[in-house]
């Protein structure tokens, strides 16, 4: 149920993004809401289900935007896998960490997407501006979106239990 809620939130974020873009917000300023979902999943839902959900988030973006299916799904699942490996070493409750990690993940996922989608085309300066701008915008909105997801979905206990066991071991 919680998994479905994350996808529903992701879907709502995609509609909001589309609305903002339609209202004239330049594409380089458009925050990528779904990348925040992926970061949240890597932080608090580090499991096989989380990987499937990250793939689902990417596929959702593919379905709403691209002409081919798969590039965003691939980019997001790769970002999720890498993040879920490093997340045990991060203080994920911090908004600063959430923000910085989201920015870096957005850059990474965007680069992977560009590689998968425009493999035979040269990268233009405009693409780089969009990549950096969207990463910054995503980083700014990440703590707020992450907090909303946390409140709506509730957080997985596994991560908190790991912290508790570490503390008790110390």
């Amino acid at each position: 149920m919680r998994s479905l809620l994350i996808l529903v939130i992701g879907f709502a974020l995609v509609i909001v993004q589309s609305l903002l873009h339609g209202m004239g917000m330049p594409e380089w300023l458009l925050p990528q809401g779904l990348i925040v979902c992926v970061v949240y999943l890597a932080f608090f839902e580090s499991s096989i289900a989380g990987a499937l959900l990250a793939f689902g988030c990417g596929l959702l973006l593919d379905l709403t935007t691209a002409t081919v299916l798969g590039p965003w799904a691939g980019a997001y699942v790769l970002a999720y896998a890498l993040l879920s490996f490093v997340s045990p070493r991060l203080f994920v409750e911090s908004t600063v960490v959430t923000s910085v990690v989201t920015g870096v993940t957005s850059l990474f996922a965007g680069s992977v997407y560009l590689f998968l989608a425009f493999e035979y085309q040269s990268l233009s300066q405009e693409d780089i501006v969009v990549l950096l701008g969207q990463a910054s915008a995503s980083a700014i909105v990440a703590p707020a979106i992450s907090s909303i997801i946390g409140r709506v979905c509730g957080r997985s206990n596994s991560r908190l239990m790991n912290h508790a066991s570490l503390v008790s071991a110390v």
């Binding site: 096989i48 990250a54 798969g70 691939g74 699942v77």
Partner: peptide, 22 residues
Amino acid sequence: RTHIALVSFGLFVASLFLTAYS
């Protein structure tokens, strides 16, 4: 972690196939 890595790798490969197929 190994399971997550394997599943993620599998999904990434699936996304490549999906990209090429679509």
